Simulated scan of single mutants.
Amino acid sequence: MDRDKIKERDAASKRCCMCLGWTIFAGCMAACCAVGLIVCGAVIAAPVIETKSLEFLETTCTTNNSYLTGQNIVCGCGEECSSNYPCLRMTVTYVVNNVTYDGVLFDTESRLNVAGDNAENRQCVTVRCSDDERDNRANVLNFNDTYAPGQSYKCLYHPDRPTKVLLTRLFTYDAMFHSMLWTSIGTFIFTVLMIYCWYQCHQACSIQRKACSIHVPISVPPQAPGASAAAAAPPGAQSGYFITQPPSYSAPGKNLPMHPPPQNLYSSEKSGYTYT
């Protein structure tokens, strides 16, 4: 019976530790999925929704003007790193249904979302941000050479806002849908798993506490012959935990033989020598 109680207590303790580990794991995964959901929403969904880039239609654009506005835009190039790049503004023309439109070019919907409503001298067509400002300027000038005035290329326009043109769509509907879908599902699943593991952990730890509160009695060794009742049942024996007293060394009615007292080896009576 005692062994069964000990095994039950050990099993409850093991289950409690295992459930606690699963709870921590599920909580960490739920937090990671939640962070991913927020990041995907800010980086992918927000630009797509705010600029309505999925509604942009394809056409052919021709650059008619490009110039540096004279503004150096400050940008972040990493942790504790800041840099700047020259602002390049481009205007294009395109034809839709035999109607010619003029528009300001932006390389992606993210750039349109950031600079679309800025003043003209800060409507930068592209961002090139590294820790070396000379590289930033060189990259901006290379972009200008690629889409120089007179060059024709595919672009995207919005029927309701024909003055804002995209060079390319950075995020598609599938990218936005899957980024939000899987992070949402992961957050939901791991949150439910964390709650379930926490409940199981609570149940297992309750069983462990109950098992630890049970006193397992200690068996009393048999009494030695002649042991008194007081020695056999010391105070505290009713609680199940005590230390037995050693048995008596003497038996009733008998006296242990005693050794004779030591003799004086220097006595004159035994040795025959007389001392003066």
Rank of each mutant, 00 (worst) to 15 (best):
N121M: 15
N118I: 02
R111Y: 05
C87K: 01
G103E: 01
C87H: 01
V99P: 02
G116C: 00
D117K: 04
T108I: 04
G103V: 11
R111S: 15
N97W: 04
N121F: 12
A119K: 12
A115D: 09
R89V: 12
Y101P: 07
M90I: 14
T108S: 13
D117Q: 11
R111G: 12
F106L: 06
N97Y: 06
A115G: 04
T108L: 03
T100E: 11
Y101G: 08
C87L: 02
T93S: 09
A119P: 02
V114L: 15
D102A: 12
N113C: 01
V96D: 11
N121Y: 11
D107S: 11
G103N: 07
A119S: 13
E109C: 06
L112V: 00
V104C: 06
L105M: 11
L88F: 04
V104H: 03
C87F: 04
T93R: 08
T108R: 09
D117A: 12
T93V: 15
A119L: 13
V95G: 03
L105G: 03
L88W: 07
T91G: 08
A119I: 07
V114E: 14
V99I: 06
S110F: 08
N113M: 14
V92F: 04
E120A: 14
V99W: 06
R111D: 14
S110T: 13
V99M: 10
F106Y: 12
N97E: 07
T93D: 13
R111E: 13
D102Y: 11
V114K: 10
A115N: 07
D107W: 06
N118S: 13
L88R: 08
N121R: 07
N98T: 15
Y101F: 15
S110D: 14
V104E: 08
D107C: 09
V92Q: 05
V114F: 05
R89M: 05
A119G: 09
R111K: 11
N113K: 10
V104T: 11
A119M: 14
N98C: 03
L88A: 07
C87S: 10
G103C: 04
A119W: 07
V96R: 03
R89K: 09
L105K: 02
V95F: 14
P86D: 00
N113R: 08
E109P: 01
P86R: 02
V92L: 04
D117L: 11
N113Y: 15
E120Y: 08
L88T: 02
N118H: 10
E109Q: 03
G103L: 05
Y94K: 03
N121S: 13
F106P: 04
C87N: 00
A119C: 08
P86A: 01
P86H: 02
V96H: 00
N98H: 06
V92P: 01
A119R: 06
D117I: 10
N98E: 10
N98G: 10
V99H: 08
Y101Q: 03
V114I: 14
L112Q: 12
T100W: 00
R89Q: 14
M90P: 08
N113W: 08
